[in-house]
Each structure stands twice: as structure tokens, then as C-alpha cells.
Nucleic acid binder design. Structure first.
Lengths: 109, 109
DNA sequence: CGACTCCGTAAGTCGTAACTTACGGTTCGT
DNA sequence: ACGAACCGTAAGTTACGACTTACGGAGTCG
């Protein structure tokens, strides 16, 4: 059920609020209310975004009392990035890829 | 003026039609009508998408008789990819980047 | 010049994603 | 057991992007 591929990664990260949530969860696991406190939208809005992210397998949740703590799902993040990379390869194959030739990468990984 | 940064890369590539255009232009330079012939939308729709892509510096156009030939702009593509990479670094710094090697240490619901 | 091709823009319609408020369920503390 | 804290979902509103048709401009060829 995790890492659902039926949703385009562009749809997932297309929303700024959702990107902010992902960035925040990358720093630390947080409850819904804690996320909403630092976002310009209401708490239910955050819940709805989290549902989308969870359905896509990008985040996982864990009960902690009355709170629900969300964290990033490494496998989902990995799958997401793979999909984006796939686009780039499809888009730029047969085309001079001048991005990687830029050699501004500070470190290989 | 090229490589306008005021538009989010997610907004640019968020639309499937726009992604198809980019992928197609990566293969070869094409006129508006030629692009529209292989897309499920009308020619003006393609024109509007090309305007967005051009304003963002992703494509450049060249007059050829009555036709307008569009091609990808390498600098724009490079800049776009940099912006996306920036997001990933911001999102995943301080977080174990498991893209290259992950494990499904996951619990759901 | 006149007809034809190719294209960009204007104007308007429409679907949908994102948001709000309202409500009910679950859990914990006293 | 009662109230408070925390959350998910339903219902409804709204803003906006993508699309269409209609039109006019620019270029080409006879």
C-alpha cells in the first residue's frame, strides 16, 4: 500500500503547502497540530494534505496518545525521486544533457 | 531575461501537456502545429503552454516562414533542474538520504 | 493583389484542487 | 464519569488553471 504510484509526483509536490510539510517532516517527526501551527492554513487542511501524502506512501503516521505523529517514509521518498529522475532521463535522452556536464557538483554520491 | 525564476518549476512541469511538450522538444525542434498534431489539445492551447515555457526560459522560438519553430533552451533546462535539486537538498538535508539504498523499515496504520 | 497557411491573443466556459467551518470520534487527565 | 485536547472527515465555497472557439496579424506563393 505504501509508495502508491497512481499519483503523479508532480501532483504530490505541486502544492506549496505540501512541499512545506515534506520539508518540515524531513527535519523532524511532527504531530498534525504542530505542523499546522507553523503553516498559514488550518489544521484540517493539513490533515487533508497528510492524507494525500500518506496514500502516496510518502509519509507514515503513528499514534501517540491523542496525537498523531507523522514522519517521512524513506521508501516513499526514494520512489518519488526515482519517478522524477525517470522524467528527466526520458526528457533529456537524445538531447545534449548540459546539466551534469556543468560539474558544479561539490561531491559525488 | 531567459531562465525566469519567478515561476515555480512545479508549476511549469505540473501540467501533463506541458511535460509532453518538453519531452517532445527534447527529441527535436518542432513548430506549433506539429506539436499540436501529436497532442490531445488544440493548437491555441499548445501556443499558450509554449508562452508559459518561453517566459520561464525553458524554450526558445525561431521564425521560419509562417511557422514558429520551438526548441529547448539548454540554460533553462539546467536552471530548472537546479531548482528541483535545491528542493531535494533542502528537504532531505538533516535526513538520511536513502535514495540510493533503502530498506522498507515501515509500519502502516 | 488575393488566397492560403501558420500562428498568437482575447474572451469565455468548465473542472478541480485547496481551503474553510462544522461535527463526531478517540484518548488522556482529574 | 466528565471535560479537554487532538484529530479525521463531511460538506460547501472559491480561486485558478487548462481548454475551447473566434478573430486578426504576419508571411508565402500563384
Amino acid at each position: 500500500m505504501a509508495t502508491n504510484e497512481s499519483v503523479s509526483p508532480w501532483d504530490l509536490l505541486g502544492d506549496p503547502t505540501r512541499r512545506a510539510i515534506v520539508e518540515r517532516l524531513a527535519t523532524q517527526a511532527l504531530a498534525v497540530g504542530e505542523l499546522a501551527d507553523h503553516l498559514p492554513v488550518s489544521r484540517p487542511a493539513v490533515s487533508q494534505h497528510l492524507k494525500v501524502l500518506k496514500d502516496a506512501g510518502l509519509v507514515s503516521d503513528r499514534a501517540d496518545g491523542t496525537r498523531r505523529v507523522y514522519r517521512l517514509n524513506p521508501a516513499g521518498v526514494s520512489a518519488l525521486r526515482d519517478q522524477l529522475d525517470t522524467f528527466w532521463q526520458r526528457a533529456l535522452s537524445g538531447y545534449q544533457d548540459v546539466v551534469e556536464d556543468d560539474t558544479t557538483t561539490q561531491e559525488d554520491s
